[in-house]
């Protein structure tokens, strides 16, 4: 479904992704993990075509997103859904209208059919009863579920999740995690889950990639990753403060120098 080959992306001098290879087979849930600021969200934007890499290829459903025109890209995106970190619900529309938004914009459906389609998706995330609530009246977890319903309203072939678990209580995290898996299987879609929540992500993923320093430092099934040899992967999975990723941000001077403790000779 998605094929990334030798992808290189830099912001000015700062290299974010340095030669990434990634493969998403049809029907799979792929986890992409790594420390904050490690280029995970950038990777999603590259897959969605909002950003273009300097080198390498991003093939989505056989099409290279870097070479598509805006119209072609928009056509491709009708087959994609994305769940944003902050849910990104339209604040001036009710939950129902938020979910209905892509349908209303792309098709002219009879109101009764539209109603059925939207309520089906809302029922799937368990929020049919909250259809008429405004985003401000929804809890964080509910908003995330409405956004999920909106992401899948067009029955996409590929669903992208940007940090779907951040800022949610444990119950909501569990609900979202199981929804990601269930929706993926029900729609026969493929999913890319970008997250740093190791436990939840591994519970639903078929295959995982760990990014570090702009490269893929480890990949494999969740079990294989847990027993990975890579010290960086081990540090990340265990959450230990010291390891290949240093606790201290590099400084030009020593701590002693900064405190004026230099010994006079």
């Amino acid at each position: 479904m998605v094929e990334i080959r030798g992808l290189h992306f830099a912001r000015g001098e700062h290299v974010v992704l340095d030669g990434i290879d990634l493969h998403v087979p049809r029907g799979a849930v792929i986890a992409v993990m790594g420390a904050s600021g490690g280029g995970k969200t950038t990777l999603l934007n590259l897959v969605a075509g909002s950003l273009q890499g300097q080198r390498g290829q991003v093939l989505v459903a056989g099409k290279d997103t870097t070479s598509l025109s805006r119209a072609e890209l928009y056509r491709l995106r009708q087959q994609m859904g994305m769940l944003f970190q902050h849910s990104a619900l339209f604040t001036d529309l009710s939950a129902f209208e938020n979910v209905a938004f892509p349908l209303r914009r792309h098709f002219r459906l009879p109101e009764s059919l539209l109603q059925k389609l939207v309520l089906m998706k809302l029922e799937a995330v368990g929020l049919r009863g909250a259809a008429q609530l405004m985003p401000a009246e929804l809890s964080g977890g509910m908003a995330r579920r409405v956004a999920l319903a909106r992401a899948v309203i067009m029955d996409p072939l590929l669903i992208l999740y940007d940090e779907p678990f951040t800022g949610l209580d444990p119950i909501s995290v569990g609900i979202i995690a199981s929804l990601i898996r269930r929706l993926n299987d029900a729609l026969g879609a493929s999913s890319i889950v970008v997250s740093h929540d190791v436990k939840e992500t591994f519970a639903i993923a078929d295959y995982g990639y760990i990014l570090g320093g702009g490269k893929v430092i480890a990949e494999g099934s969740p079990d294989a990753l847990r027993s990975s040899e890579s010290p960086l992967a081990q540090q990340f999975l265990r959450g230990s403060p010291e390891g290949p990723v240093p606790f201290h941000y590099p400084a030009a001077t020593t701590f002693a120098q900064d405190l004026g403790l230099q010994v006079n000779k």
């Binding site: 969605a48 909002s50 805006r70 928009y74 056509r75 995106r77 009708q78 994609m80 859904g81 994305m82 944003f84 970190q85 902050h86 990104a88 619900l89 339209f90 604040t91 938004f101 892509p102 914009r105 792309h106 956004a147 909106r150 067009m154």
Partner: peptide
């Protein structure tokens, strides 16, 4: 500005709405 900050504009782009 707040539509941008809360990713509403990005979400719109992702839903293929210009």
């Amino acid at each position: 500005g707040s539509m941008k900050a809360t990713e509403q504009l990005a979400a719109m782009e992702m839903m293929a709405v210009n």
